[in-house]
Design a protein around this nucleic acid. Structure first.
Lengths: 189, 189
DNA sequence: CTTTTTGTTCAATATGTATTGAACGTTTTG
DNA sequence: CAAAACGTTCAATACATATTGAACAAAAAG
């Protein structure tokens, strides 16, 4: 029995380490797409947290970051549309959780970038009016490929949405406190 | 006659300004996708330069950057696959120019990012084994959408390649000195 | 109502990275 | 072959921005 408990403790500690590693990797990945690392950490923790909604204080504790940093990053993630603020009737002020359509928002951002590239290519082509035609090739290719993606990406997203909605039995929007049934919560031990 | 010349000068000066603005905007756009601004400037100038190939020295002059900076950025852009080094038999050492398939390389990079997200979602799901199923939803969605894009993006790129190759009458790979026929070159005046 | 807890804002700091400049090596030119 | 021009490397610097911490505001608890 003693053995079982200590095994549980060991296993739990290991899982915490793995969670921190996971959070850190999300942070690094977010950096590669142009977000602050801390924003990635917040998002990463919200991906695996139990319950899925977390207060600013909880985030600051678990991520070992200042409250100010958390505030800045949650604001950023909220503006972008990756997380949302939820307030429960009984409980205290407010929590953050990942938005259901977070990744569609990401795609929209990506689409905006592609549009920016297409427009910039057009500006470039304007500059080259009157030049020898083969001098335009570079900009023409840049324009065409982005125009192509600009048209195709929304269709891809649509197909994804169809595929997804046809599968999912729509979950309720109501917020439950998952702590009471979680295998990770104190009552397990 | 005097008038014509001065009009030409004014027009030329204006175009130079617009070129610089263009280069600067490419720099800013590159920053939004996680590249150094100066890399964007180099790429931006290579998009509109005449001739399309430019020496490190020319780049340093026109972009008002140090030789060191140019060297670093060209190396970066070359590694990524956006530009290539070309050396001409008669002329001096080597030049840089934009690769024909530069944007396919960009797409490959994008695909790598998507793969990274998909894999990270899988790691997260591993961490959540044994948890209540609804705690997995966030990670499952993250996984599925990235797996979807991971499969679809290459098909989109293929379709683009088909479309493109069916149109273009393949240009020669030989390098010509466009200065001799350029409207922008000194002999115009 | 007072006290304690919690969240936000913003100026100051720390940190990472882009950029420079000098020293070095290499190639071309006279 | 000598001299000049050019390109690269790398340590030092400048710069931008992520992050903190203290002061403030707002809410919850006692």
């Amino acid at each position: 029995m003693e053995n079982v408990i200590s095994n549980n403790l060991i296993h739990r500690k290991q899982q915490e380490t793995e969670q921190k590693q996971f959070v850190e990797e999300v942070g690094l990945l977010f950096e590669t797409i142009g977000f602050p690392r801390m924003a990635g950490r917040v998002f990463g923790w919200l991906l695996i947290s139990n319950p899925p909604h977390q207060s600013p204080g909880e985030l600051a504790n678990i991520l070992q970051a200042s409250k100010g940093s958390i505030s800045t990053m949650t604001r950023l993630l909220e503006q972008i549309g990756l997380i949302e603020r939820v307030s429960l009737p009984g409980h205290r002020r407010d929590y953050f959780r990942i938005k259901l359509n977070a990744w569609s928002e990401m795609s929209k951002r990506r689409l905006d970038q592609i549009t920016a590239f297409r427009k910039l290519a057009e500006r470039g082509l304007d500059l080259m009016k009157g030049e020898a035609p083969h001098l335009n090739e570079r900009l023409q290719e840049m324009h065409d490929i982005h125009a192509f993606f600009e048209a195709e990406l929304p269709r891809m997203i649509d197909r994804w949405q169809e595929y997804r909605t046809s599968q999912t039995s729509s979950g309720s929007d109501r917020l439950e406190d998952d702590r009471s049934v979680s295998p990770l919560s104190p009552h397990t031990f």
